[in-house]
Design a protein around this nucleic acid. Sequence first.
RNA 1: GGGCCGUUAGCUCAGUCGGUAGAGCAACUGGCUUUUAACCAGUGGGUCGUUGGUUCGAGUCCAACACGGCUCACCA
Length: 522
Amino acid sequence: MSDQDNDQIQQRRRNLEEIVELGHAAYPHRFDQTRTISEVVSLYHMHAGRKEEAELESVNQILKEAEGGVIRLAGRIMTMRTMGKAGFAHLSDGRGALQVYMRRNDLGEDGWSLYQRLDLGDWVGAEGYLFITKTGELSLHVTRLSFLTKALLPMPDKYHGVQDKEIRYRRRYVDLIAAGAVGEREPEQLTTREVFERRATIIREIRHFFDSRGYIEVETPMLSPLATGAAARPFVTHHHALDITLYARIAPELYLKRLVVGGFDKVYEINRNFRNEGISYKHNPEFTMLEWYQAYSDYDDLIDLTQELMTGLVDKVCGTRRVVFKEHVIDFDHWRRMTMREAVLAHWPDDATRPTLEGLMERAQLEEAAASIDLSFDPRLNNGQLLGEIFEKLVEPHLIHPTFITEFPTDLSPLSKQKADDPRFVDRFELYIANMEVANAFSELNDPLEQKRRFEEQAGQRDRGDEEAMVMDEDYIRALSHGMPPTAGEGIGIDRLVMLLTNQHSIRDVILFPHMRPETKG
RNA sequence: GGGCCGUUAGCUCAGUCGGUAGAGCAACUGGCUUUUAACCAGUGGGUCGUUGGUUCGAGUCCAACACGGCUCACCA
């Protein structure tokens, strides 16, 4: 839409010119605050509220002396109400808002002239003293007004904010500005700003969790000559100086395990992965992944650690173990655990066609089972992959409460260690909450010869057209050949976790600048 | 990629049966020195997503396209 020449924009330009003519810098360099707005609000809001005249007077006497009688603060103008030769406005520092009161008598001719040329959205500094208005609101009685920056574009509706999701995603800055002023909001619904503040808290707490347990945070390549460690199509780029193809990483997994070989027995990394795949409410082309690896542990240890991590996060950011998500109340006090095959059998819709436990590893029964639940599948899928498909179709939609699914087929898990008593399966789990895969963990395969065999199997699948099958990583085999101790590793999708803990139903609502098709002009 | 829905003033939204484009907020002018979704009186503001078609006449009906949302599929 044309932001260029509407009357409001022209008016704002004129106001800026006139402010400059009054002697103000158009874009001043700094402003000294004595307090931020949110500090003032949290320190003095307890005085707010309607009062008898006598009490009001005495409270205001005290407030006038507060902070030495001079408070200077800065913020963006969110609302303005002028009545003749005085006016009220709300200034916001993003986190909190404070009402300011300005009178011609106090500001003088120059200050009042500036006031008259202010627009919604402008940044100003205000100096004055605190008081409570007749209607009981904590306010700053301004004695000096400073111009800080003009907003040349008009603000969104002060009451409704921005409803258009496209604008909210494309112009997150507008969404963030408007979110503070939205009137129609459920009390428990977070503002955009609160969602991202909570996201920051979650990530901070995760770091604290691992740091305090002796894990070391590392950063491994995001650009790498091989895209491996997961099953996904990569983004491809080119390095000019080296004249080589590089891939944006799809997972840090193999690098992190090289570090375990090197003696970092507890490592973690929080960073972006990139997958060149579809976009949906739970998929963004780049997403934030937590991965950690610990020596001398197996996947069972990680089940305990995962519960500890998750319940700690839930306590910290939600304040309750019963977390509202969509129409569900997710109970983080009860964690279920079942094998993939048990889950399939438990959710089988029809007693007559229910396969047997062993049948779920046999070709004929698997195909029969798939047919009876109307699952169409690629015949090139191996047995494990087919079981995985059946699981996803049948079980995943029912997994609302935290559920660890264990005993994955080896076919589906090229980097996992086989079960000691049944090589058809690996020691692995995925954690499902609210129909989303939130975590994936396993005992790491550390037998270099078996790993090489698995890679070769993957290469075979690749040759048969599976673009997502893993590629051989010779150096990783070499690393394993130097000896990796028994190790368990896990990955948690941070964006999905944030969705859960902020009750946001689209991954785009927890990513500040989600990917979208470029805006087309005209 | 399929299905459904949406796109009208800076923002939030109406727009009947196809007959001169509407409201609230925001803006402008005037009034008001404790208001608060301030109020009162007045004014201006539109390529109705784009292109084409049907029609005497299209915001409205039809088609294609663009962008977005939801959903299914794909995708761990």
